[in-house]
Design a binder for these strands. Structure first.
Lengths: 198, 198
DNA sequence: GGTCAACCTTGACCCAGATCAAGTGGGTAG
DNA sequence: CTACCCACTTGATCTGGGTCAAGGTTGACC
């Protein structure tokens, strides 16, 4: 779905991953959101998509026509409240990402992205012990570059470097094992606890 | 107000400008939001501030204790609805800024910031004609650098360059006149219309 | 099996912006 | 009037990541 397309539904991701992307006239693109399962798509009270939305894996979504959804939202304050919560969470995520884009080095950017993906998969996937996690990358090198504000070459080089330094272990090009999550978080330059308030 | 401080009120800016900033342990900082008059501060259902909040000019805010505000929000769906609107707008702004941070050059970043400030002041301030606007910078070079993910030296150099190229006219260090808004928008690399959907 | 197209890696080189270092101007405290 | 400070400018140099270019892998299709 392309920015500007009219979109007469809203929905939420059931499974798979999609990306929200902005593009400049000259072709430079920046991913502005990663849609993971449970994330909401579309804005009540707007006719068109504001961003390009692209599925990066097979994707299942649960959609509602916009009209009835808006009526439902007016009737049941609980829905509106929940939607506000989710929007505030997305805003926090966007702001965290602004720090990544504005101030982190290429290596830290990669580590930050891997942390996010790893933390997400800890809850859903194979956790193999104390600090160890493994998962499959749902993104191509190019998609990662778009998310991180880098080129795909730099992404490739930094992943190779993290592998060389034993921060991650690659099996094939897409499967990643993290022997020590604390180490990865450190490389990401994050406050070690990652503690969100509330 | 510092990130992590407990904050038992919410509020909105009446006049003046404040900034939301994130800081890494090693001191790198990134501004993640600019609070202009009418913007909302604080998150219902969170105890502490998630970011550093700093007034960059004299500032007047209109504040509410959090408890009564949350009750009011539950009672009057209109408030919740309005808050959702504002949060979605902030999310859009944050995402627009992600494109600026991730993909624009230093010159484009400066032009983007000036566009935002100029557009804001067109409505509130001295408009002098068709495409001409002037206003005072409410930010130091350092604050601009924090917003744009640059150093203050680069900000200074690019402002000098825009002045040399007649895109802007400086009077003193803080007062800026834009003879041709379209030209500025072009320098910012924005789609010429700047057209938001909806 | 061979071919083709994605996707990824690696190397060599370059440049925008960071870093380090003076220096300027204007406001204010003494 | 002088001294000092703060915000800013400008120059010289360095470097992380971009750019350009050449392979390598894998899988699908013929």
């Amino acid at each position: 779905m392309w920015s500007g397309d009219k979109m007469d539904f809203v929905g939420s991701v059931v499974s798979g991953i999609a990306s929200l992307t902005q593009t400049m006239e000259d072709g430079r693109t920046q991913m502005v959101g990663l849609l993971l399962p449970s994330d909401f798509v579309g804005r009540p009270g707007r006719d068109g998509a504001a961003y390009d939305v692209v599925a990066t894996t097979d994707l299942v979504m649960c959609c509602f026509r916009k009209k009835p959804f808006e009526e439902m939202m007016n009737d049941t304050p609980h829905i509106a409240h929940r939607l506000l919560e989710m929007t505030l969470d997305e805003l926090d995520a966007a702001r965290e990402w602004m720090l990544v884009l504005g101030r982190k080095t290429a290596r830290e950017k990669i580590a930050s992205l891997l942390s996010i993906l790893a933390r997400r998969d800890v809850t859903l996937n194979l956790e193999t012990g104390h600090g160890e996690v493994e998962f499959d990358l749902p993104l191509t090198r190019e998609a990662m570059a778009d998310y991180l504000g880098l080129t795909l070459e730099t992404v490739s080089r930094q992943i190779s470097a993290l592998k060389r330094d034993q921060v991650i272990i690659l099996e094939g090009k897409r499967h990643i094992a993290v022997p020590d999550m604390d180490r990865l978080m450190e490389e990401a330059g994050d406050d070690s606890d990652g503690g969100l308030l509330n």
